[in-house]
Amino acid sequence: YENLQLLGRLHGLSRAAATRRADDLLAAFDLTRSAGRPVGGYSGGMRRRLDIGASLIATPDLLFLDEPTTGLDPRSRTQVWELVRRIAAAGTTVLLTTQYLEEADQLAERIAVIDNGRIAAEGTSAQLKSRVGSATLHLRLLDGAQRPQALRILTDTLPGTAQPAADPLALTVLLATRPDATDVGRLVGNAMTRLADAGVGIADLSLGRPSLDEAFLALTDRQAANDLEGANA
């Protein structure tokens, strides 16, 4: 409580105005019941909320948040996400840096992908995903030794990029075309038939839109998946 009051005074607010602003921020960030406790006894999520609250003492037009959820548990991370949404909805422009692509997907209206210090791509989440494919097929095999064979078959039968995943039994295909739902079913069905004819056993499969993680790897032209496949061969 005293930290927020002090910051308010340093920003030129009167004592009464600084007190009101501190009360408002503590209530907005669900910290009122802990206002009298030393900050040293706060959890990581509470400290992060207090940090963000302190930056809003002067109601800025532009707010920089540098990896605000690093090290937080899932519950605290979700609370910070909600705070960021409320801040943006109130009219403040938020520039947020993060290594969590799910966070960028959840919060950002526009995303800049930075690779080696340079912007590799920029756009909305949907635009970035659409640049790497229209759908993603995830497969999990019964036998990891069959993965090279499965990759060859999928590369031959599907219009996209087939690549191994970190799991030695798994692989992913980014479909490069924009087929409708019927075409997707036909393409995937044909690929599954080819795999079955070749004796490749499938434990599980799922089809969905590309994730932002997959878009990041494709847009930054990382070769980690190929290197991993070579190491496992």
Score class of each variant (00 low, 15 high):
residue 1 Y to H: 13
residue 17 A to V: 12
residue 18 A to D: 03
residue 19 T to G: 05
residue 21 R to D: 01
residue 21 R to I: 06
residue 34 S to I: 07
residue 36 G to N: 11
residue 36 G to D: 12
residue 39 V to D: 09
residue 39 V to K: 02
residue 41 G to K: 08
residue 46 M to Y: 05
residue 46 M to A: 04
residue 52 I to L: 06
residue 61 D to L: 05
residue 69 T to C: 04
residue 70 T to S: 07
residue 71 G to A: 10
residue 74 P to Y: 04
residue 80 V to W: 00
residue 81 W to I: 05
residue 82 E to W: 04
residue 84 V to A: 08
residue 86 R to Q: 14
residue 95 L to I: 15
residue 98 T to A: 07
residue 102 E to L: 11
residue 102 E to Y: 08
residue 127 Q to L: 09
residue 134 S to T: 06
residue 137 L to D: 01
residue 140 R to Y: 11
residue 143 D to H: 12
residue 144 G to T: 05
residue 152 R to N: 11
residue 154 L to C: 10
residue 155 T to H: 04
residue 156 D to V: 04
residue 160 G to N: 03
residue 160 G to S: 10
residue 166 A to P: 09
residue 171 L to C: 07
residue 172 T to I: 02
residue 172 T to Q: 02
residue 173 V to Y: 00
residue 175 L to F: 10
residue 179 P to M: 03
residue 184 V to R: 03
residue 185 G to C: 14
residue 187 L to N: 00
residue 191 A to N: 01
residue 193 T to P: 07
residue 193 T to Q: 12
residue 195 L to A: 06
residue 198 A to T: 14
residue 201 G to K: 03
residue 207 L to R: 04
residue 216 F to Q: 04
residue 217 L to V: 15
residue 218 A to I: 07
residue 220 T to F: 06
residue 224 A to M: 14
residue 224 A to F: 15
